[in-house]
């Protein structure tokens, strides 16, 4: 996986709280056995009417947000099921950064493991971020993981917290399993001493 260092892109605003993984990708798309091609099903029930036509009222269907690579949303994003199909769909659709007030724990981990940067900012910060909002679009945000900051068009800078270990993993795009397998001696030792129920 390529490392994540900085990202420059436009952001789509999905002004909703508690967006659950059933909305991000509905269950009928969880039957595939590979990781590719979920983007077309992202937010399926919101994006499309029952007759298959696009729902023009949905935030991400407005022409100006279609190129967005950053998603800005509310609190508890990604709650519900552990389905990693949710970040696979977001990434395949083109999102590389998600900025939210808060994330559900499993979803947050699933993003990091797929090279998507989930950023927590406070409600006030997210509002300030949208200073130059045009409909549901923020024209340009610059995200820097090393510096742990997001900069908007007006040059205002917002700092975010990030776990140092997962930051290093993301910056370098390291394969987590390879890293863990370097601990083989410790795993083996634990297994040798482990009490089996």
């Amino acid at each position: 996986m390529p490392g994540f260092k900085t990202h420059l892109g436009s952001a789509a605003v999905l002004d909703r709280d508690h967006v659950d993984t059933d909305q991000i990708i509905p269950k009928q798309f969880l039957k595939k056995i590979d990781k590719a091609g979920y983007g077309e099903f992202l937010f399926f029930d919101w994006r499309y009417h029952s007759n298959g036509q696009e729902n023009e009222d949905f935030e991400l269907n407005s022409p100006e947000t279609k190129e967005a690579s950053i998603l800005v949303t509310g609190k508890n994003f990604g709650c519900g099921s552990s389905r990693e199909h949710a970040p696979w769909a977001l990434k395949d659709y083109g999102f590389q950064v998600i900025i939210a007030e808060s994330f559900a724990d499993i979803f947050f981990n699933n993003c990091v493991k797929n090279g998507i940067l989930p950023i927590r900012l406070s409600k006030a910060e997210i509002q300030n971020l949208q200073y130059e909002r045009d409909g549901n679009l923020l024209r340009t945000l610059r995200v820097d993981l090393e510096q742990q900051q997001v900069e908007n068009e007006t040059g205002e800078v917002f700092h975010f917290e990030f776990d140092p270990y997962w930051k290093k993993m993301l910056l370098n795009g390291w394969d987590e399993i390879s890293v863990t397998l370097q601990q083989e001696a410790f795993i083996k030792k634990y297994e040798d001493e482990r009490i089996v129920n």
Binding site: R83, E84, N109, K113, I177, L181, Q183
Partner: peptide, 23 residues
Amino acid sequence: SFGIGTSEVEHVLATQTLWQNKP
């Protein structure tokens, strides 16, 4: 006991371990 994503499923299959911050 806790739920995990598919990347973590693969990690547990390969290593029988997970990196976790204590909640």
